[in-house]
Design a protein around this nucleic acid. Structure first.
Lengths: 171, 171
DNA sequence: GAAAATTAATTGCATTTGCATGTATATCGG
DNA sequence: CCGATATACATGCAAATGCAATTAATTTTC
């Protein structure tokens, strides 16, 4: 399975890293200074703790995220919702089945393109989100404990730049 | 894409949020200013793109992360590795089966506690990581494109505070 | 204007995941 | 020092996931 990776001392593919000197090693940087490591640790814990709280409300992470996005964005297409909610479209489709069965969302055909399905919150869905939002707000507050407004704004601003850098979708 | 979705003034459950005023709504904040949303979008894309590249090297995300952590931390216990790699222990255990089968890691009983299993990179494992590291370094570089050294250091410093805030494990 | 290509969403299916359990070892309390 | 409890890791199994194929509709091309 992994044979390809264990070959010896392969010279760097110039398409992969054009910088002649090569990258500083992870040891040089140190795990604790390596941003993706920190980001994964932080989000791993944030998402896990939220997931446990959502389970008690009978919701999964995809369902929670769909409700959250729908509280802000009105009647998106399924594929748009998938991007915003950071959920695979097939997973989202099934999560929407569950939310619809619980009467929290409604599916309706797009008027302009009958392939498209627009998703909207029902009043019950809005109520459900109002109940789960405090958990999300609190998890965020825990995350930012001891971080002042200025630092926090700078942090969010950097995140916005980063999202613009790496995003693949125009939305 | 619509704005001003009507709000329903659902009374807050006092057990959920003791702060009398309640949280500002997600609409008030705006998705694009809500840090957990940005973080999930960013890490979703970062991890997906790295996962695709790793698949071509015959590695999964848990395997990649295990190798990365092992390149920095010497002979951790399985549970420690699971924390650093942000992978469930049962998932990690199976990823280690695969890495061991490929000769990339070695398991050895802990000398002090015979229940413990210490994991270390083999020379082949070290070579494998040397080959995948440029991909990780480049994904990180993409993420920080157009962000200066000072901003980047401030960002990482905030992340370190956040990790200290939310982490559950002492490590 | 019809065939070909593209796009939207859902669904089938194999893989992956994670919870719960099992097994072995270590530590604690009396 | 012995039974009870806790911890470490692996594994059984059901559920969740994601890729690929399907169905349906739109757009493009010639």
């Amino acid at each position: 399975m992994a044979e390809a990776v264990q070959r010896q001392a392969v010279p760097q593919d110039p398409r992969i890293d054009a910088s002649a000197a090569g990258d500083p090693s992870l040891q040089d940087i140190g795990l604790g200074n390596y941003a993706p490591y920190l980001l994964n640790r932080i989000m791993g814990r944030y998402n896990a703790s939220l997931r446990d709280e959502m389970a008690q409300l009978g919701l999964t992470t995809p369902k929670m995220r769909a409700l959250a996005v729908l509280s802000v964005i009105d009647a998106p297409l399924v594929r748009e919702l998938a991007v915003y909610a950071v959920v695979e479209q097939s997973t989202l489709s099934r999560a929407l089945d569950g939310l619809a069965a619980d009467g929290l969302i409604a599916r309706s055909a797009d008027t302009a393109d009958s392939r498209g399905v627009r998703i909207s919150l029902t009043p019950a869905g809005r109520t459900a989100f109002a109940r789960l939002w405090p958990h999300m707000a609190q998890a965020q507050a825990r995350m930012f404990r001891g971080i002042g407004a200025a630092e926090r704004e700078a942090f969010v601003s950097t995140l916005q730049t980063m999202l613009a850098n790496i995003r693949k979708h125009p939305i």
